[in-house]
Each structure stands twice: as structure tokens, then as C-alpha cells.
Simulated assay, not measured.
Amino acid sequence: MTTHPAPAIPPEILNRVAAISEAIGRLTVLTDPARSLRLRRINRIRTIHGSLAIEGNSLTEAPFTAILEGKQVIAPPREVQEVNNALAAYDRLETWKPGVEKHLLEAHRILMSGLIAEAGLYRHGGVEVLHMAPPAHRVPHLMNDLFGWLAVTDAHPLIASSVFHYEFEFNHPFADGNGRMGRLWQSLILARWNPLFADIPLESLIFEHQAEYYRAIQDSTQTTDSAPFIAFMLRMILDTVTSSTPEVTQEVTPAVQLLSVLAGEMTRQQIKEALGLKDDEHFRKAYLLPALDAGLIEMTITDKPRSSKQKYRLTDKGALLIIPATAVRPRPA
């Protein structure tokens, strides 16, 4: 059984979990698959650039794009190697499971290939970090314990991923590459909760708040409580999925506009008038049918679609855009 204590969960953290869940629910419903594919490449570059910049890589986003396109870049070979490795690792993200230790070792091998001798292996010696890292001989046991905790915890993924990230950084299991691995694995845990996290450039915002990132780690270490780090990471996540990355925010479609006027059960004519529309065919094709096809609304008389008494109401999926998500499952203290 794990020896990692469950952190105390203050209201600040619970409130952020609820706010993030609401924002992610909205983005998930509103995601346009075609647009998502276009954004994935942009956000993937921003993610990798942010993670490597935290570790001292000096390349800007432009060379990252050039490397991704297979173009030659004039830059320090080590930094180009870091970019190529990171691109390869994030391309594998969907194939790894966060609870499988050998997948973490494989990810480290890809991330650090050609950069250190112990790529894909836990460290065999001590490391110089801001805190007293555990001795190398204890690392395998500590990591096995951490994966055991991840397998049994009932904490909300937002909290569990942050706890894992902090404990990983405290253990500092590798000779190098611990920061980028910790952030990668938190993203993986979150992506398994909601695939949208695979395309959210969280790393970019952490880079902008790099000093706070390290201070949160120190604060948690000094207080032997991961809550300060959890609070910081949730603030970064919330900022990323709401206001700090406009590219992630989906445009308000006519189908979503329809939801804003739908109160209880309404007829087709009532909805059209509430929207201030006059053309029936435009309303049907641009508003009503897309909302039905997306599962945002439903008919009240499903067996008679053309009934003169037909009305429409919100589905649970449509309600996500209006009703804040409040269901969180923090692990009991």
C-alpha cells in the first residue's frame, strides 16, 4: 500500500477543480474536430517549446515549426536534439498509459535519447537539486510506491495528476530530464481523463510563471504538503483553458446561440422568435438541425418528429454549456 499521504484539500483547490471541470465541459462540447486538428499542431509546438524553455532550451517557436516540417535549422545540436526527442515523445502520448511504469521509462528514453547516458533508466547516483533528493538506491521503491498510489487513489484526476507531478519531482528519479518528464506525465494523466488536454498548451503558461512553478515545489517540500503545488498547477490549468490561450476557446456557433434562448420546452416557432430570426429554412439548417445532430437538444415527442405539438428541450450534453459542473471527487484527507 502506498505511503504517500493524501493532501488536505482546501476550498480553494475544490473551487478550481469545479471551475476547470466546467470550462473543459464547455470546450469538449464545442470542439470542432476539423478546427481541433488545425490547432493540435500549433498547441503541440507551444507545449513542447514551453517545456524545453523551462529547462533552458533557447530556441523560439519558429525553429520548432521548421524542425517539425523537416527543415534544416542552424542551432546548437543539443537543442535541436531536444526538440526532435520531444516531438517524438509527444507523438507517442496516446499510446502510453499513465499507470504503467515501463511506459514512463520508455518516454524518458525517447525524451533524453542522445542527451544522457542513462536515458530510460533510473539514476544510479545523487543529483543536485533545490531539495535533498532521495538516494539513488531508494528511487525504484519510491517510484513503484508512487505508481501504486496512482492506481488506487480516488482523487479527481486534476488533483491526482498534480500530486503525481509533485511527488515525481521530489523523487527526482532520473539523472536529467525530470522536469519535462513530470510535466509530460501530468499531461498524460489529464489526457486520459479528457482527451482535450492532449491539445492544451499548459506548458507554455508554466514557462511564463517559471519562478512560481519552482517556488510551489519548494513550498510543498518545506511544508511536506503537496497542496501549494496543487493549487499552483490548478491555477495554471484554469488560466489555460479559459482566458490565457484564445486559440483553445471555441467560437460560439448558431447551435450554441440557440441554447441561450431555450427555456424549458419550446416549440420551433418560439425558439425562432426568441432568436430574432424570420427565415424558417435558415433557422432549420443553421440552428435547429446542428443542435439536434450535436445532441445539444432533443425532441419531446421522439416517435413523431413532425408532430404539430413538437417541442424541444436541452439534453444533459447541452446543459453542460449552461450549468456549471460541480461534481468533483477529491480524495478524503
Rank of each mutant, 00 (worst) to 15 (best):
E208V: 08
L37Y: 12
H103A: 01
N178G: 04
M236V: 02
N43A: 13
G56P: 06
G126Q: 07
N84I: 13
A6M: 13
D225P: 11
I110L: 00
M1I: 02
R268P: 04
A34Y: 10
T223W: 05
S58A: 07
L39R: 12
D293V: 02
P330Q: 12
L238I: 08
D145A: 06
G126H: 09
H141I: 02
R268Y: 14
L121W: 11
K71V: 07
L234F: 01
R183I: 05
L146Q: 02
I323A: 10
T60P: 03
P77V: 11
P330D: 03
T302L: 11
K97W: 01
A133M: 01
L188P: 04
T60D: 15
N171S: 13
P7Y: 14
E251A: 07
D176F: 01
Q218A: 15
H209T: 14
E273M: 05
L93D: 12
L321Y: 03
V73H: 14
L202K: 05
K309A: 05
R192D: 03
Y287H: 15
S204C: 07
E265M: 10
A211W: 10
V139C: 02
L68H: 05
N85F: 12
A62M: 07
P63M: 04
Q257L: 12
Y90E: 15
D145Y: 00
K285A: 00
R306I: 02
A286T: 10
R40K: 06
S243A: 11
F229V: 01
A216N: 07
D293L: 05
A62K: 13
E273C: 02
L105G: 01
D225S: 14
V241I: 09
E265P: 10
D176S: 06
L188S: 04
R329A: 09
L288S: 11
A274P: 04
A88Y: 01
A198T: 15
Y312R: 06
E22W: 15
T300M: 02
T223R: 10
P290H: 00
L234K: 05
G182I: 07
A255R: 04
I206K: 01
E61F: 14
P290L: 00
A86Q: 04
Q210T: 15
